[in-house]
Structures are given as C-alpha cells and as structure tokens.
Nucleic acid binder design. Structure first.
Lengths: 231, 231
DNA sequence: CCGCGATCGGAAATCACGTTCTCATTGTCT
DNA sequence: AGACAATGAGAACGTGATTTCCGATCGCGG
C-alpha cells in the first residue's frame, strides 16, 4: 500500500462499523468480541486525546488495549477502518450530546445558533478542555475526514450523517417557523457543517494567529448571513 | 520520522523556498542550482496533475526530473519541503492570474465576486480542465494544506499570503466604496478564503453527491450574505 | 593539459510503519 | 477430556522516505 493509498482504502460495506467488526465472530462469542472491539476503540480515543492527533501507530493501539496485532486485524480491516469507526462514534456521540444541549432552547433560530456555536467550540477546543464526551475526536480527525472526503464521499457522508440530520432538522424547523427562507435545506446543511468544522479547525490561513481566532459568535454571524437570516 | 511526523516536519526557516533551497549551493553555482531546483518543482507539478493528488513518491519526482535522490535531498529537506515549495508557488501563480482576471471588472463587489467564483472553480476543477497555470495544484493539495495548518500555522499562513493579501485588498476596496461594512477585514478574508477552498474541495459531507455540488454562484451567495453584503 | 576538491549519479542501506503470517497457547463447548 | 476456535507474541514482508557509500565528473588554478 502506498502512502497515498493510506488515505484511500476500501472501507468495506456500508453497515455500521460495530456490526461489521463484530459480525466476524461466531454468534455465541459475540459479546466477548464486542468488548474487545470496544477496547480497541477506547484505546484509540485515549491516544488521540493524548497526542491531539492521529500521531499514533497501530502498535500503540494494540499495546494500549492489551491485545495483539493479530486480534486487531481480525476485527478491523486496517487503521483506516479503525479511524472511521472512531469518527462515526464521535459524530454519533456529538449529535446526542448536542441534542441534549439544544433542549434548553425553543426558538428555532436560537437552536440553530446553539448548534453552530457549540459544534464550533468542540471543533476548535483542545480535547482536554471539553471533558464530557467521546466526540472530542472531532477536531483531531479533521485531516482523516478530508482524506475520506477525497477518496470516498459516500462514507464521509454516512459517517457524518448523525450531525447532518440533526442540523437539517433544525434548518427545517427554522424554515417552517418563517425565520428562514431556504431554497435547498440539505445543501445549506452541508455548507454549514463543513464551514463550521473546517474553519474551526484553523481559522487562520491568513493573518496573525491571535487576532484571527474567530470566535464561535463570529462564525455564527457569518453563517446566519450566508443562509439569509438576519444578522 | 514516523508516518505521523510526515505531517509535522520542521520546515526550516521562513525565507522563500527558492532561496532556502538554492542557498545550499555555492555562490558561483547558483544559477545551475536554481535550474535543478526548478526541474524538481516542474516534475512535481506534472506528477500532481497526472495523479490528481499527492500519490507519487520522491523516487518518482527524482526519475521524472532526471536527477538523483542524493541531489533531491541536497536541495530539499524532504518531501514536505518540496510540497510546501510547490504550494507556495501555486498560491503565488494563482494570485497573479487572479489579478489579471480581475482587471476586467471595476465594481468592487463584482471584483470580489469574481475572485471567489474563480478561486472556487480552480479549487473544484480537475487540473486538466483548467490548463492555463501552475496554480492548479490548489485542489490536489488540500490535504497537504490541512496537515500544514495542523502542525505549522505560521507556514500555512505565509504560504497562502499572496491570495490572502489580494482578497484583503478587494475587501478593503469594497469597504471604502461603501458596498460593505466590515468590522475586521483580515478576519473576513481568512474566513472567505478557507470557506471557499475547503468547501470547494468537497461540498458534500451530507446529502447525495450530485444534488449537493454547490456551484460557484451558490458559494458566492453564501459568502456575500456571510459578510453582510446584499444577496 | 594536469590534478585536486566540490559535486553528482546510482544504488544499496536504514527506518518506520502498516499489514500478514506462523506457531504455540489458551479457552470454550460438548 | 478432546476437538477446535480464538489468541498472544513476534517474526516477516512491502512500500516509501531518508541516509549513506563509492566511484565518476566537473570546474578551475597552475
């Protein structure tokens, strides 16, 4: 496998990663297998947090989870699959937490705003600063996501689906409430999601670093304007 | 160097890549050295176009330019430096070409619009479709840029400076003409640049692929709104 | 034209990973 | 207990980046 291919592996079927990985085990041993898969995932999340990035080897994951390389490749088709699994898990967890956070708001536009600013903060912050969740991998996985986007949009999409669907729901609520006029909610959702996550990743391709750390509010202001809301 | 480090190398001094690379040669041999460095760069651009990505090895570059590995490492600190050099060159070339393109417009807002839509197209298009320039690497280098952003914002910034400065100038023209009210032009420029380039890279973290290929005009509409212009 | 030191091409040697494979051990189920 | 699946340990492999080695060249003062 070439270095480039590392970003473009065959990630297998569309089925949720957990099923995919566990299905390899016989039925009776299923729970045991699930636990082992989970250990790999937990170890990976720990490593991502510690290094604040994907700078760890498969060996590290194996060692950290007290299992063997052999087992690793029995449950995952490779490092890319592991990362995809972690990413999917992060998106899933993020959407759940986000949904809870949103419960405190009733105004459609405010809910939308809360979604954007919260996601933005999660995407910018150091994992350590936002303890309450496994979705913290969001930021650290930006380049993994970009690679996935480049080689397999379909998977990138389905993995991000939880967040996308939530955002879409918020946009449609806002639209129905009359606060927003959207020609194509889905397209807007995609635009918002990517803009928020990638800009958060590093709001500074130009300019001096401190002065250009756009705050979550600024990001929101940019987005409301972009989708035709009132600034 | 680990695989991870490949994304986080020490890219050396801030001086322009050409000087950096050539400085290693003795003074009298300078022109000869410049020519050889250029051959490496040209070969790299060719390879990027052919593969539409960074899927080539240092060996490929060496072979293509009819030089030796030894020479390569004499002129560049590594593959990352080579890519940085190519990226810088692309941004430089892109800003020059863009400036020429802009000459056909006089209205500040239209010039801004032309900047965004053109950059967007360059960022989305297949290199082959847009023959007239070396800046075509823009899109193919998205993940390199992201990696650079992660490990060395300063370099990512200086490398993108040509485009950033041009955009900043356009924003300030628009502001002075009264077509726009910007609290912080620099921040807006950074936001626009990143939004345009990354969203172009793949406008579809959610939704079906065909329906979600946002056009350059849609991107522009989103951005004008975002910075408070009239949609 | 000669000879020396800076350079250079060619290719083997290193290294760090991801991925695969072998073999002996441990468990599980009956 | 016996048969077999699931493992752990770690060697083995393949690909690429980066280094190192060695003999061939090149440029130039004498």
């Amino acid at each position: 496998m070439t270095n480039a291919d590392a970003h473009a592996p065959d990630l297998g079927s569309q089925a949720p990663w957990r099923d995919r990985a566990v299905a390899r085990s016989l039925d009776g041993a299923r729970s045991r297998a699930e636990e082992r898969v989970q250990r790999f995932l937990d170890a990976t999340v720990e490593l991502i947090r510690e290094n604040d990035g994907l700078d760890f080897t498969v060996q590290d994951v194996v060692a950290r989870s007290n299992q063997s390389l052999r087992s690793f490749y029995q449950f995952f088709d490779g490092k890319q699959h592991l990362l995809l699994a972690v990413y999917e898990g992060s998106m899933q967890a993020a959407s759940v937490t986000l949904l809870e956070t949103l419960a405190s708001e009733t105004d459609p536009m405010q809910r939308l705003r809360l979604f954007v600013t919260t996601l933005y903060k999660w995407s910018v912050a150091d994992p350590i600063e936002v303890p309450p969740a496994p979705h913290l991998a969001v930021r650290s996985m930006a380049d993994f996501l970009l690679g996935l986007l480049a080689t397999d949009r379909e998977k990138a999409r389905s993995a991000s689906a939880p967040l996308f669907d939530l955002l879409l729901k918020l946009l449609e609520e806002a639209k129905e409430s009359g606060a927003l006029t959207l020609a194509n909610p889905r397209r807007s959702a995609a635009l918002i999601l990517q803009t928020t996550m990638f800009n958060a990743y590093s709001m500074n391709v130009g300019g001096d670093s401190e002065a250009h750390e756009a705050s979550a509010e600024e990001m929101w202001a940019f987005i409301v304007g972009g989708i035709g809301g009132r600034p």
